[in-house]
Design a protein around this nucleic acid. Structure first.
Lengths: 220, 220
DNA sequence: ATATCTCTGGATCAATGTTCCAGAGACAGC
DNA sequence: GCTGTCTCTGGAACATTGATCCAGAGATAT
């Protein structure tokens, strides 16, 4: 392994592949990432790619890890336990708001190191929050599931439209679709259709976290 | 359209295709369903399939709808509002416990009629529960996201192993993997690893619903 | 008998993930 | 400086999959 850089300044590497994959995923969406497209963007061939990387799933996992690792760097040590949990949850939310494709990825392999990391972070703060030992597991699982549920839903919404579509346009479309549903069968959905159009995803997400936290601390 | 049945008693139809697809999905998992496999099982060709069905996604959506429609048939009219919400949530949980593949499907297309149906059911009971109008939307979204989060996680767990694997074996494997994590970085996860092995998924799921309900009713 | 409509089966295409292999380039040893 | 070896590259080739196309079977109406 040479210490100096290789002569070619565009030398291929696993890190470069993953970074390029993230770029393609962000601009073209989940379906926009193909191995051939990745090779073309890197101006190389398939064999070169597969030398550095085991398979496509390997790249996806690494890309998800890289994006989420950055989201989880925020230091939560000097926050109150409940605020720390909110910070972790919002960190994940912001990460897949910026990279919707990780939503699908996160809900694919549950034993993924990244998922366990989030689980760990939540669990620690739950203990600091004074949640009894025998409910910490259930509480951490509930919070994690909620976070991943929102991730999946956001990702689904992002994947169902062309990448680059303006979010408010999508919401307006769904909202008007909702208000055209059957008045009897979908009375509630029709009633809240207007609210869907101008709601704040992030705030709604946080509301759910708060309800979970309130329930967990009240009943424990 | 003839009133009498066709002479061939194995006549192809959209309903038969969807039913066979469900059967294949249940036995072979999400990846086990291919259009060619479906045609082979129906002893027919591709053209015949595509005559009755628009594309594969069409079949997946119809299969998900069929399975979930059955899960949502339970009458919740004579239950207390909070029990009704629990019943709806548990109905969905049981449905994707029996058919893990709908988890991935549910988290794919958010504007799916089935998802909206669950949303509608939850929302109605929230109103009956006395939740203020301006928080009903957020509360229904939180509950829906939680339910779908668990769905996705269960589906991911089911998809990561060979179909037919015994659940307790999977949990035991993950549990032992957890207990071998780094003692410092994963203190919490290690501590609850044992609990993972013998916990009841359904009860844990219900605990999350209860916390959400407690938080929603307490703070509203 | 002919025409038409519904439905079927398989050939065929395009896209995609993956493997394989010939070979380029650099570096160590002689 | 030559050779061998190891790392790395590029693209041909293969298998699988979703989807389209088309010739034609079978029944029914005219």
């Amino acid at each position: 392994m040479p210490i100096t850089d290789r002569r070619r300044d565009d030398a291929l590497s696993r890190a470069l592949i993953v970074a390029t994959a993230i770029e393609m995923l962000d601009t073209a969406g989940e379906r926009g990432l193909t191995v051939r497209g990745l090779a073309a963007k890197l101006r190389t061939g398939l064999g070169a790619l597969y030398w550095h990387v085991r398979n496509k799933s390997d790249v996806l996992v690494a890309a998800t890890d890289a994006v989420l690792a950055e989201a989880l760097t925020a230091d939560t040590a000097d926050l109150a336990p409940d605020d720390a949990i909110r910070a972790v949850a919002l960190g994940v939310f912001d990460a897949f708001d910026a990279h919707p494709w990780i939503g699908v990825q996160l809900s694919r392999l549950s034993s993924q190191p990244t998922t366990v990391q989030i689980f760990e972070r939540i669990g620690r703060h739950l203990q600091a929050l004074g949640v009894p030992d025998d409910t910490q597991f259930d509480a951490a699982a509930a919070l994690l599931n909620y976070v991943l549920g929102v991730a999946g839903q956001n990702a689904a919404l992002a994947a169902s439209v062309e990448p680059g579509t303006v979010r408010s346009d999508v919401l307006a479309g769904v909202s008007s679709a909702w208000s055209e549903l059957d008045a009897d069968d979908y009375a509630f959905t029709r009633r809240v259709a207007a609210r869907l159009r101008d709601h704040d995803d992030r705030e709604q997400f946080l509301a759910g976290v708060n309800w979970l936290l309130a329930g967990i601390t009240a009943r424990s």
